[in-house]
Nucleic acid binder design. Structure first.
Lengths: 345, 345
DNA sequence: GTAAGCGGTTCATTCCACTGG
DNA sequence: TCCAGTGGAATGAACCGCTTA
């Protein structure tokens, strides 16, 4: 049973209880076995026993201050309100736990300030491309902290940090092409982003759509259907759309939840999918939120597993790796909302 | 422009640049203004300017180690996969930002180990009652760290930490009563919890339902309808239920997402709500996930605002307050899934 | 302004038992 | 038998950046 002395149990307490020096205790409990003097088997046992007995938990801050690491894995997701982040977090948590690292999600947007003073083991930054100064800040972080940075960006090159490049731009082109082969009018359902990132029309996804339309000689701007954000709003707007005069027949959805809402609206309006309306989502739709059959989508195979592995690898690896570029390719995953049956591009 | 010397900017750098001593710089940048020598206005300006110029960010770990605080606000939610936590986090983030505190969500279940070595400013622990040793660990945390603990528990008394007591038990009784007045059979829709927390039937919510049924002389066990977890699964099971021989007429839903799924299933099955089926949710349903009209529910008025205030208060207040008990009362919020029009219990 | 830590990590050093010439 | 040489085990002490007497 842990002695409840009167406060925190420190390494010094453990060392005293085990009858060894502070340095030795530290070596046993945290030093890499590969080091010179790993300690005798006997000593190790004693120290470990004492630590367990006292319920010793290392002070992360002391540890982090000395080594520049130890803060665990930090995920700067920007918003929690996104199933993508939720799924990623679950996977990272599982992987990290195997290495005794805790996983933290930063809930605000100040990743730069936070990470500068935090010494995490590894950190994922997703909003690099969407924030002024993003790339600069990532570089600065990588050069002045020991934190392993993983930048989600389509524009950066790795320099001492990893870069994950995963852009749906080409996928959108292919989606357009795919649907255009069967329909005269292919439309984009997009959320109203207000003034964020320059507005909906300036967003890379919309731009990719417009570009694809242009290649086919179609009037892209007229094919973009902007609705308010949120599931409920999208559902309502979708209902109106499907019952109105401008009935769509082939729709690319900007994001997963919109596809879910549109599918539901179609169900409700009595529009048969995919016979009368084909729907393709950009980005995968979490199984948990799909009420009806699976939605056809473009996405990255095994994103979460792959991304989590990259992150946790960075956290575990103490070496100064140069940093690598991971390019994620988007593929088509047919569901029940399109007439395709195979995954050919 | 920030000098990019070659590493981290420390307080010493700032002091040197400003031409003052380390102590002075520390006083100006972090010391409470109330202290003895706050420094002359002139000095303050110089130091602040130097800090800004260099892009100084205090090292949280050093700060935390010295003071026992500084880790920001930590929310030990266990999982992000719950809209309740997401909504709370958003509110806490807003409140905390006003005090320059960052908000972190701990994604794994090891809150005890994490907090023991972390010196957060404040931490919310939600799973106290559902984990062996929970209360003990909370006490130990409060006594051996400076972190302000807020324990979400219906069983504990505050002892140097705050306790938020918010149990739906009585609300479930009232819901039963409310529906029973109009129906012979009131049922509970619950997720299959497997062996967690002792199984669905052992969960406090289920127990409260059974108790309520017993009071009315109803066979409670027969009225519990257990379905697999997840929106989609619940939707499918709900469909089957509504089309089967055991058609329900009044259902209390264990949790919000189940109510959403059931409402959807009813819509799909052509069962009119609330005319043929009344639905009450235990716990509020996030507006964003409601496709149809608002669902009637029992919940706590302004939970998120109130809870966030409690948490951030604890984080900001450096005094050793004794800790207080906050009791949250559950009320009825009528929506369109019941025939009630007023909120009377 | 000076200086003493907070709790760990880690380099340089001492200590020791044992080898072989 | 004695002693320089050797390498593993354990320790001393500096130090990370900041707060505060």
């Amino acid at each position: 049973m842990p002695r409840e002395s009167r406060g925190t149990v420190t390494l010094a307490d453990v060392a005293r209880a085990a009858g060894v020096s502070l340095a030795t205790a530290s070596f046993v409990l945290s030093g890499r076995g590969g080091s010179r003097s790993a300690g005798s088997a006997e000593t190790k046992k004693k120290v470990r026993a004492a630590a367990a007995e006292l319920g010793y938990v290392p002070n992360r801050h002391a540890q982090a201050m000395r080594t520049g690491r130890g803060g665990g894995v930090v995920l700067a997701l920007g918003t929690l309100d996104d199933p993508w982040g939720v799924q990623l977090t679950a996977q990272v948590r599982d992987d990290a736990l195997a290495h005794d690292l805790s996983t933290l999600v930063l809930a605000d947007e100040r990743w730069y300030e936070y990470l500068l003073g935090a010494s995490a083991d590894a950190a994922l930054v997703t909003s690099v491309d969407f924030v002024a100064d993003g790339p600069d800040r990532v570089r600065r972080l990588a050069s002045s902290t020991h934190t392993g940075i993983i930048a989600f960006s389509a524009q950066m090159e790795p320099e001492g940090f990893d870069v994950v490049s995963s852009t749906p731009v080409r996928a959108i082109g292919r989606a357009y092409h795919r649907l255009r082969a069967r329909h005269d009018r292919v439309q984009l359902l997009a959320p109203d982003l207000g003034r964020r990132v320059g507005g909906t029309l300036a967003h890379p996804r919309t731009r990719a759509f417009l570009e694809a339309a242009r290649e086919h000689g179609d009037p892209g701007e007229q094919r973009v259907h902007i609705v308010p954000e949120g599931s409920h709003e999208t559902y309502l707007a979708g209902l109106e759309w499907l019952r109105g005069p401008d009935l769509p027949e082939a729709v690319i959805c900007f994001t997963g939840y919109q596809a879910v809402a549109l599918q539901l609206a179609a169900e409700r309006a009595g529009v048969r999918v995919p016979e009368e309306l084909e729907i393709v989502s950009i980005g995968d739709v979490p199984a948990k939120s799909e009420f009806f059959g699976p939605i056809s989508y473009y996405g990255v195979d095994d994103v979460f597993v792959r991304l989590a592995r990259i992150i946790v690898d960075r956290a575990v690896d103490r070496e100064d790796r140069p940093g690598s570029l991971h390019t994620f390719d988007w593929e088509f995953f047919p569901g029940t909302t399109t007439r395709d049956t195979d995954g050919a591009s």
